[in-house]
Design a protein around this nucleic acid. Structure first.
Length: 404
RNA sequence: GUGGGUGUAGCUCAGUCGGUAGAGCGCCAGAUUGUGGUUCUGGAUGUCGCGGGUUCAAGCCCCGUCACCCACCCCA
């Protein structure tokens, strides 16, 4: 029997890889003063349809529980964040800097870098409208990627500001009600050749041309706030990977200002992370009127990218010491030695049944165990054992009480 | 949901013209019983995705089906 489509089994090596990624997420966030939080994996279906519309239910693991309540496995974290902040935001000092590392479920067609279950890192600053918050969040995202061994040369942080884009459209005298569909076209410019044509249909030839031109050459003079965000990003050392790019709008309707996506340079992968500012979402969803900026980074595209760059988790050490009883009579003393080691916090084990010493040594070195302890009758008569370093072959005889 | 590709050992894969299933890696055991990594020898492992059809004979050909991968749609 196989796992369900889009779901993954994590064998020890796979899990080690996932944990490696997650620990980079945790450390980058904690280092920047973000606090970890979490919520339920299963939520009322309504929590998600309220935010995204009833159609979203088709893309969720949604069902009725035994009490006939419509429920869904969470496809994202933001609605839960809004609920939890609604309950407590008044009591929390601002800005609120929270992050989560959680598992999500979406009933979609699995694809390259996309499954029906995945882990995602979410980092949000709530309660600050300042551009410096936007920059800090981006810096945290990049920091995690750096910790995994990616360099600035590997990364492109494409960044835009919907406010600037909207202002540009206003300057072109594009009516407000057309803005959203224009955003949609711009979002698709790189993937869909028809998008250019549709843009012309909406805007007319001259305005479309002007807009396309602006996309190629961002008029930073007309994007004051973005300029401040970029400046702060440079303070965080992101200068080498920043790319102001008006074409980044992101699909989400709720972004209000800064939007950004992080890509791998020269890789045919979708964005490894994406986010932006959503100042109205909290109040729109009935929460406190707090500004917010944040991003999400999933484990799947990131794993593909790391694999492509030959980056992997440093080899983990299952055992620090293998204790070898040299004959059948040493089984019990070997266990005593292991017990002593474990009580001192040293990961160690010994065979369940007598094993030839040469075989035990071979298995120890094959597994990368750095040292073994040999328990033989001669030394054990004086409560002593032989400690052997496998890398050098050096060994010494020590008393049980001197074991480290 | 639509289109394309792939399904053979634990993993990566080979398998010619249709003729009883292969390699490498890994795993297990051994090379005189208290000393490893290299090496050598031996061993185990398959519903050839599944079901049907053609044929004396199918991993191979035909039909169906399922799963996975890739692309589209979507992307919170």
């Amino acid at each position: 029997m196989q796992p369900l489509k889009g779901f993954r089994d994590f064998f020890p090596q796979d899990l080690a890889h996932l944990r490696w990624i997650q620990s980079a997420w945790h450390s980058a966030a904690k280092l920047a003063g973000f606090e970890e939080w979490d919520g339920p994996v299963l939520e009322p279906l309504k929590l998600f349809t309220d935010k995204s519309g009833d159609e979203i239910a088709g893309q969720l693991y949604a069902f009725e529980d035994k009490g006939e309540r419509p429920v869904a496995l969470r496809p994202e974290m933001t609605p839960t964040l809004v609920r939890m902040l609604s309950a407590r935001a008044g009591a929390l000092p601002k800005p609120i800097k929270w992050y989560s590392v959680a598992q999500f479920f979406r009933y979609e067609q699995p694809q390259h870098g996309r499954g029906r279950e995945f882990f995602q890192w979410n980092v949000d600053v709530v309660g600050s409208p300042h551009p410096a918050a936007d920059a800090e969040v981006i810096a945290v995202a990049v920091e995690a990627l750096r910790r995994l061994g990616l360099s600035d040369e590997d990364l492109r942080v494409r960044i835009s500001d919907r406010g600037a884009l909207a202002a540009f459209l206003v300057a072109l005298e594009v009516p407000e009600e057309l803005h959203l569909s224009v955003f949609e076209c711009i979002d698709k410019l790189e993937r869909d050749p028809a998008a250019t044509r549709r843009l012309t249909e909406i805007l007319g030839e001259s305005r479309a041309a002007e807009l396309l031109c602006a996309c190629d050459q961002f008029p930073l003079s007309r994007a004051e706030r973005l300029g401040v965000v970029l400046e702060a990003c440079r303070d965080w050392g992101l200068g080498a990977c920043l790319e102001p790019d008006l074409r980044i709008v992101r699909g989400l309707a709720y972004y209000t200002g800064t939007v950004f996506e992080i890509f791998a340079r020269g890789a045919k992968l979708r964005a490894v992370a994406g986010g932006g500012r959503y100042d109205r979402l909290m109040s729109d969803m009935g929460g406190p009127p707090l500004e917010a900026v944040g991003f999400g980074m999933g484990d799947m595209v990131l794993s593909l990218l790391l694999a492509e760059r030959g980056l992997e988790a440093p080899p983990g050490m299952r055992l620090e010491v293998l204790v070898i009883g040299t004959d059948a009579s040493m089984l019990s003393p070997a266990r005593e030695v292991v017990r002593e080691l474990r009580s001192r916090g040293v990961a160690s084990e010994t065979a369940y049944a007598p094993v030839r010493v040469s075989k035990a040594l071979r298995s120890a070195s094959n597994q990368g165990v750095p040292r073994v302890v040999l328990v033989g009758p001669d030394e054990w008569a004086e409560r002593k054992v032989v400690v052997r370093e496998l890398s050098s072959g050096q060994q010494r005889t020590v008393h049980l009480s001197e074991l480290d």
